[in-house]
Write a protein that binds this DNA or RNA. Structure first.
Lengths: 153, 153
DNA sequence: ATAAACCTTGGAGTTTAATCCAAGGTCAAG
DNA sequence: CTTGACCTTGGATTAAACTCCAAGGTTTAT
């Protein structure tokens, strides 16, 4: 059992944030002490881990509440409802995954292209790297190099 | 060349959002018309695409500005600086990727476990799926099924 | 040449997600 | 039995990221 200060320290967040999540229905302590202190158990801690992970990959607290609602009232929901909700979120997750893989590829190619030395980074740009990785995916036959890009007005 | 309304329609955002990004140094139109209307070219559009993608995977506008600064002053930066920045962001992207893959796995397993029918979803929970996928990764030798989980006081 | 649909600016308002504050109760150590 | 670290509540404040508004200029279509 953790008290609010212990759990918040564990995940490097503020106690206030836990109270905030509670107020907004994301995470309630499974019990209270005689004097009213919040007491969080291991399951609560897991739930918090989930919330923080989901937040880190760009889901809003509302999105997360949707997902967690499966947990909360699972015995009141039909499997079909759950499946629908899950499949919708899965699509979102997979879209994000695709985006991130795209980013990772571009960043890696940028990191490799870049000499890493003290010279001017004239040919180092995320956008250039993204563009060339787009090219790579969309039309890998064309293979020219853009030197004079991004020079506006 | 797009006017603000055209570009915003293209990406399904508000014109105000584009003005906001401009004010905060994320995206400026490459030119203006005689009467002062903003005119965005293809490169501007690509840059916007990048911003929106990065946002969608959980980067803040500040993070994104950092990344884009590589583009803006690349001739004033040493390759070593660029490489440092890129490698830092790459680490963040890869951490997010790992999280998302974890989510995707859990959601898939949940979707598969779930009968999808009109019955009560007693055994369908994200947290249960996450937990069992944790189990799967951490100790895949143990292979039992958790029926009585998530039953908190 | 005038309405409708678009654009300009500056500034105010909203939403989301915390974070802080004040007044007071709790608990372990000395 | 009091001191200090911790907890309670409700309400105010902050920061980020928009989103809206008002007053006026511009374009295009009739």
């Amino acid at each position: 059992m953790y008290r609010i200060g212990e759990l918040s320290a564990l995940y490097d967040i503020k106690a206030d944030t836990l109270r905030f999540y509670e107020k907004h229905g994301l995470l309630s302590p499974s019990s209270r002490s005689d004097s009213g202190y919040r007491l969080y158990n291991q399951a609560d801690s897991e739930r918090l881990k989930f919330i923080l992970r989901a937040k880190a990959v760009g889901f809003s607290l509302n999105d997360i509440a949707d997902l967690l609602s499966i947990e909360v009232d699972k015995s009141n929901r039909a499997c079909a409802d759950v499946k629908g909700l899950v499949d919708t979120k899965l699509e979102q997750v997979e879209a994000k995954l695709a985006e991130l893989q795209h980013f990772a590829t571009s960043l890696k190619s940028l990191s490799n292209t870049c000499c890493g030395g003290p010279d001017s980074a004239e040919h180092c740009s995320i956008l250039e790297a993204l563009e060339s990785s787009d090219k790579h995916i969309i039309a890998k036959k064309e293979h020219h190099h853009f030197a004079n890009l991004g020079h506006k007005d």
